[in-house]
Nucleic acid binder design. Sequence first.
DNA 1: TTCGACACATACGT
DNA 2: GACGTATGTGTCGA
Length: 292
Amino acid sequence: VHSDSAFGSSFTADTKSSIRKRFAPRSGEQFKIGPPFDTTTLLKPVFLGATNEALYPILRVRIDRGFDFVNNEWIGYKRNYFTLVSTFEFKNKGFDIFRQETFNTIATNNKPARINFFAVNITSICCDDNLEIKLVQHTAKREHGSQNVPSICAIVPGEIPSHEIIKVSTNIRNPNKILQFSKFFYLDSKEYSKASSNSILSTYPQGSISTVVRYDRMQFASPFHHRSPTLNNKYFRIRIELLAYLSDGTSTIIAYSETPPIIVRGRAPSNYLKDVVISKTTGMTSSSPPQS
DNA sequence: TTCGACACATACGT
DNA sequence: GACGTATGTGTCGA
């Protein structure tokens, strides 16, 4: 098997040669499902307010752009975007409990604490030292726009839209289309009217409530080192956290789910050797200029 | 080496 | 089909 260690997230392996094939920046082929997330790790108990019944959150997460599975490893590129969507549910429970119930957890003082709302956060961890690696989120304007810390997003249980929905709903501007796709990401307003006035829904932040968090145009922040001192690849994990915001204004991490170790290639020219662009219009390929 | 900045190319949405 | 946009990556120079 030839080495295709130089294949990047926008590349597809060519097993017949050592030349990698690259899709154009705006090609739909840039969308592909990334590394799977492991089963949810519970950090804090969650109880129904009325009955104290224990609940078990399950985080649903999918990466839809930015990672390739090559030679048994998940590889992303620091210069390229990745896209991630996430939601959660409670095991064996429907949405009804959000319309009718309140939720508690155990605060740091060991006393029950009322949960006002749940939220999702994204972070990354270096496998060597378990330290956090910062992520940034760009706008579509990239360097001409703002660069933000990815936001913590209040959320209620929902269903992750299909990979295809994520692909076709990216970079939509037409207001009618935006409206059409909003049902995949936001709670229908009918759900509010059906809700009990003292359910957890009434303590969510004002405004539309997300059923799915979408992290678009994500990148690993610089600077960080891509290689360990031994020059081996460094490994990272992307982690999604489920947070509970409590009635006293504090928040606590209830649970998390994360990827297996992934490699994030840096900007070194050696990571971009020998590539061939596939043109959709001409079907021809063109080589990049020789590296010196 | 690494980075920010700018440049180019090309498929996408309208 | 024209036009503006979004994004992978080539390149320069600190």
